[in-house]
Simulated scan of single mutants.
Amino acid sequence: MPATLSSTKSRAALRTSARVSAELLLVLVMLTVALWALGRMWSIVWPLIVGLLLTTLTWPLTRFLRSRGWRPALAAATVTVLFLLVAAGVVALIAVPVASQSGELTDGVGEGIQRLREWAAGPPLNISDDQITKAFDTATDRAQEGLGSMVGAVVTGVSTVVNGLVTAVLALFLMFFFLKDGPRFLPWLARQLPGRLATDVPTVAARSWDTLGAFVRSQALVGLLDAVFIGLGLWILGVPLVLPLAVLTFVSAFVPIVGALFAGFVAVLIALVSNGLTDALIVLAIIVGVQQLEGNVFQPMIQSRGLGLHAAVILLAVTLGGSMAGIVGSLLAVPLAALIAVVWNYVREQLSEPELELPDDESSAGAPLPS
C-alpha cells in the first residue's frame, strides 16, 4: 500500500519552515539597516578602513621597534613619519608621471579595442551584426571610463581634493593611534562586554585582524613583484607607458583574479597599438608566465595562511562589490568576504557538537593486537 502523509509531521514541517523564514527575514532586515547606517556614516567609516589597512602594512615595523624597547608613542610616531616620507616619494616619483600619461593610456585602450573590433569584422569571423558592434562601442566606453576612474583613484584617492585631504589626514591620525594603542584594544574591549561576549568578540576580532593583515601585506608584496617583472618585460620590448602600466598592475593585485585579468588586458592592448601583434603576443606570454610564477611560487612562499575562500567565492565577491560600490567595492570585497568567513567559522566552531572521547579501555578494545 502506498504511504500516506502524516498530517502531524506536515504541520510540524510547515511551522518549522515558517519560523526559519521569519528568522531569515529578520536577519535580512537587520543587514539592510546595518548597510544603510554604514552608508550614512561613510565619511567616517572610509577613513577608518583606510587607517586599518595602513596599520596592517606598518604594524610589523612598529612591533619590531617596540620589541627593542621603544616606547609605544615613539615607535608609532617614527613609523608614521617614515610612512609619510615614503608616500611623498612615491607621489613625486610615480603618481605625477602616471597622472600626466593617464589620458594617453586611456586613449590607447580605446584604440586597442577598436582594432579588435576591426579584426572581428574581417575574415575569418566576418562579424558585422549591429548589436555586436554596439556591444564593442559600449565596451570601449566602459573601458575608458573604468580605466580613467582607476587611474584617478590611484592619483587622487577621492573625487575631490578636499575630501581626499580630509580622508588622508584622518586615516593617518587613526593609523598613529592604532599603532600606539592597538595591543591594548582587545583587553579593553573584553572588560566592556558582559558574559560570554567578553571572550567571543575579542577572539573574533583577533582572528579578523590576523586575516586582514595577512591579506593586505601578502597582496602588496605580490603586487609589487608582479609590477616589477611585468614592467621589466614591457620596458625590454619598448612598450610605451611602462610606469603607468606597472602602477596599474600593482593596484590591480588587490582585486584577486579580476584585477590581474584587467591589468593584463590593458597591457596587451597598449602593446598591440604601439608595437604590433608580435609584441602583443610576447607581452601576453610574459603576463601569463608571471601569473603562473605568482600562483605557484610567490603566493605559497609569501602567504603564511590562505583566506580560506574558494576562487569562485572570490570572483563572486569582487563582482558583487564592483556592482554595488565601483572600484572601492572591488577593493574591499575580498577582505570583507574573508572577515565574514572568519566570523562564520568561529560561529560554526561554537555550535558544533564536541567529539566524544572513548575511554582507554573502550578505544583499545577494537584495536588490532600487536604482532
Rank of each mutant, 00 (worst) to 15 (best):
L245H: 10
L193A: 00
G295T: 05
I302T: 09
V216F: 02
A198W: 11
A271H: 12
L272K: 13
P300K: 12
W188F: 09
L277M: 13
A205N: 10
L172D: 05
G259F: 02
S208G: 13
A271K: 10
R191L: 04
L277Y: 13
V247E: 10
F250Y: 11
D210M: 09
Q291F: 00
L272P: 04
E294Y: 01
G264W: 03
G213L: 01
W209N: 09
G276D: 08
A253S: 14
G306Q: 11
A285N: 11
F229E: 07
F262V: 03
A271I: 07
P256C: 03
T278W: 14
L221M: 13
F262Q: 06
D200R: 15
F298V: 01
Q219K: 14
V268S: 03
G289S: 13
L179S: 05
V268N: 06
A260K: 01
L245Q: 15
I282R: 11
M175E: 11
G223D: 03
G295V: 01
V266A: 03
P240E: 06
I270V: 14
G195S: 10
V251A: 13
L237G: 06
A227V: 04
P244M: 08
A285K: 09
A227W: 06
V201T: 07
Q303P: 06
A285F: 12
L179Y: 09
V216W: 02
M301H: 15
G259D: 04
M175H: 14
K180G: 00
V273L: 04
P202D: 09
M301W: 15
P187A: 00
G223T: 03
I230H: 03
T203R: 15
H310L: 02
V216Q: 12
L212D: 06
L172P: 10
F176K: 04
P187V: 00
V201H: 13
I236P: 14
G213P: 12
F250A: 08
V204D: 05
Q292R: 15
V242G: 03
E294C: 01
L224P: 02
W235D: 01
M301V: 04
F229C: 13
P300I: 08
T199V: 06
G233T: 02
F254V: 06
P202L: 14
A267K: 09
F262W: 12
V169G: 07
L221P: 05
D279N: 12
F215K: 12
L234R: 09
L225F: 04
P256G: 08
V251H: 13
V242T: 11
Q219V: 00
V251I: 14
L248P: 06
F265D: 05
L241D: 03
V288L: 12
A220I: 01
L245C: 01
G223V: 00
L232S: 05
W209C: 01
A267V: 05
F185Q: 04
A260V: 01
V288D: 07
A227M: 06
A206E: 14
A280M: 09
I236M: 12
L179R: 09
F298E: 04
W235A: 04
V204R: 15
P194Q: 07
A311G: 03
A312I: 15
G213S: 14
F176Q: 04
A312K: 13
S304E: 13
F262E: 04
A220C: 04
L307D: 10
A227S: 11
T199C: 00
R217P: 10
A312V: 14
